[in-house]
Design a protein around this nucleic acid. Sequence first.
DNA 1: AGTCACGGTTGAAACGATTCATGGTCGAGT
DNA 2: ACTCGACCATGAATCGTTTCAACCGTGACT
Lengths: 341, 341
Amino acid sequence: MPQPPRRRRSSISDVARLAGVSVGTVSNVLNRPQRVSAATRERVQAAIAELQFVPNGSARQLRVGSVTTAGAIVLDLTNPFFTDVARGMEDRLAQDDWTLMVASSEEAPEREARFRRLFEQHGVQGVALVPSSEDVAPLLALHERGVRVVLLDRPSPVPQLASVAVDDVAGAAMAARHLLAQGHRRLVLLNGPRTILQCADRSAGVVAALTEAGLDPAEALEEVTVTLNAAGGERGAREVLARRTGRGPVAVFCVNDLVALGVLRTLRREGVDVPGEVAVVGYDDVSYAAELTVPLTSVRQPTHDLGWTAADLLVRGGAAESVVFQPELVVRESSGGGAAG
Amino acid sequence: MPQPPRRRRSSISDVARLAGVSVGTVSNVLNRPQRVSAATRERVQAAIAELQFVPNGSARQLRVGSVTTAGAIVLDLTNPFFTDVARGMEDRLAQDDWTLMVASSEEAPEREARFRRLFEQHGVQGVALVPSSEDVAPLLALHERGVRVVLLDRPSPVPQLASVAVDDVAGAAMAARHLLAQGHRRLVLLNGPRTILQCADRSAGVVAALTEAGLDPAEALEEVTVTLNAAGGERGAREVLARRTGRGPVAVFCVNDLVALGVLRTLRREGVDVPGEVAVVGYDDVSYAAELTVPLTSVRQPTHDLGWTAADLLVRGGAAESVVFQPELVVRESSGGGAAG
DNA sequence: AGTCACGGTTGAAACGATTCATGGTCGAGT
DNA sequence: ACTCGACCATGAATCGTTTCAACCGTGACT
C-alpha cells in the first residue's frame, strides 16, 4: 500500500514561475482578476490548474488578519435545540458569505476553553457560545483581544458582551403555572447543574410561579439534578417513581425535551399512565414533541431566530446589544392540558 | 457605545520585549519549557499573562505545516443520524487530543466544496465527509494534496480513498422483505435524489428484495423523490394519499426517520390508521423512534461506531481502508410487525 | 518632440511564529 | 591556567501570502 502522499503543496511562487510572471501578479489574479490583462490571467490560471494550487490559508490569514468565519460552541450537538440554533446562524451567515464552524463543549468548561482557543487561533471573526460556566472573565478577555463574542441562550451579565437569549424565568413560570392550573400542588423539577444559567433561571421561574400561587417552594418543589439528555431523564424518572409517596398524581417539569423523552420512555416501560399518574412538561418543543406516544407539552423557543440574531450581531459587529426573546407554552396531552383546560 | 476594540493583538515579540528576552526564548517557554531556566520561564510567563498573549495560530501553522484538527462535512446537521456520527468522531479524536470542526453541506455540492476549501486552507489534517454528489475527483485531488480523506456513510468507489459505510442495499432489502412478509405487494419508497449514493443504494435494495420475491419492481414499486427531512415526509405522505387507489393497505418505506416522522405526522392529521391503512418503515432508528405515537419500525445503523471508525482512520492515517458495517432491522408497530408477525 | 496618464507588472517588505546554528557563561577536571 | 561540557539564550532565516510604491511602455495630447 502506498504511503499517504505528503509531497509539498505548491505555492504561489511555483505558479508564478510556471506562468512566467511575478508572485504579485498571481496574487492579483486570485484577488482582483480585473487588474490583470486577459492574456496573463489565462496563463496564470492554466498554471494554477496544472499545479492544483490551493492558496495557503495560514499565510493569507497571517498577512490579512482574519477570515470571514464564525465559530459556535454549543453544549450538546446531539440536542436538536442546538442544531436548530446552528442552522439559524448558518442561514444568517450565508447572506454575507461567511462560514460557520460548530463545536460541542459537552457542558465541560475545559472543552469550551479548548475550542475557544482553537477558534481564536484559527482567526475567526467572532464566536457565539452557550457558556458552560458562570465565569465570563475568559470571554471578556477574548473580546478584549478583538474577537467578537455573542452569548447564546443566556443574557449577558456584563455590558461589554452581546447576547441573545430567551426569557427562561418566564418560560419556566409559564410551565409551572400551567401545571398548577391542572390542580397539581407538588412539582418535581428535573434540572441540570445550577452552574448553567438556563438551569438556574428555569428553577427560579418555577419558584416564582409557586410563590405567586401562595405555595411554599421549599415544600412544593423537589429538584433533582440530572444530565441534560434522555439518559438523565430515565434516571430522573426512576428517582421520581421510587420517591413517590402514595398520595395523588405527580407533576414533572423537565429542563429540556430530551430529558422529557427519557422520562416518557421510562414511564411507558413501567406502565405508568401519563398524564393520569404522572404529568410531564418539557422545554424546547423539539420537532417531534407533538408526535410522541403521549404528545408532549413543552415550552417553545424561537430557536432559529435565536441563532439568526446571534449571527447577525456577529456579522454586524457594532455595539454590544442584548436581545431577549419570549417563549411560548405549547399545551399537549402529557400535562393533561388538553382535557382539563 | 464604544467601538469594538480592534487593538493589535500582542505578539511573541511584545512578550519578549516586556520580559527582556529574545523571541526564541519565548517560543521555547511555550513549546519546550524544560529547556528554559526557571527564572526566565517565570518572567516570560508573567509577561504572557500581563499581555494576555495568545499565540497566532496562522503564524504557527504557516511555519509548522498543520494542526491536529479534523473536519467533518455532513449533509444535514439537524438530522440526529449525522450528529450521532459527529459525536462518535469527537469521541475518537479526543483520545489523541485532536479537535473536530463540523459543517453542514445541506446536500449542496457547492456548499460542500466551499467547506472543503475552508478546511484545507485552515490546514486540517483530514476531512471526513458525506459526499453530496457522485463526483470523487475533487476528493481525490484533496487527497493528492496531502489531506487525509475519509468517505462517511458510503463505500469508496476508488481504492485511494478510505471509507466507512453501512450496507445500505442490505438494510433497505431487510426493510422491504419485512414489508413483503406483512403481506404487502406494493411499496412506495420516499427517497432522496439518486445522486446521493445512500439513496440510490436503498432503492437498489428494495428492488432486489422485490425481485427476489418474484415481483416486478416496475409494477410493485413506486418511488417518490422528496427532501430528506420532515417537510419532505409530509409532502410525500400527501402524495401517497392522493394517489391511493381504493384497493387495500399501502406500505411506505422512508429513506430516513425524519421523512418517516413527517409521514406519521401527516397521516395522524388526516386520520389515517397506521399500520392498518398505511404501514410505515423508516431508516436510521433515531433515538425517539420507539417513543412516537405509533412506534416506528426502522433500520438501525451503528451510528456512533461509524463516526468513531472514520475518526480512527483519520488519526491513524495509514493505508486507505474501507470498512462496511451491517445494519439491523428493528420491528415496531408502524409496520404492523408486532401483531401480524 | 515632449509631456502626461494609465493600465499592467514587478519585487521587496511585512505578518508572527518556529527552528537551529552560534555564542556566552560557569564549574569541574586536569 | 587551561580545556571541556553543560546549560541557556540569541537572532537570523524561514514558511506563503498580500500589499504597495515604483517602474515600464504605449498612446494621446499639446
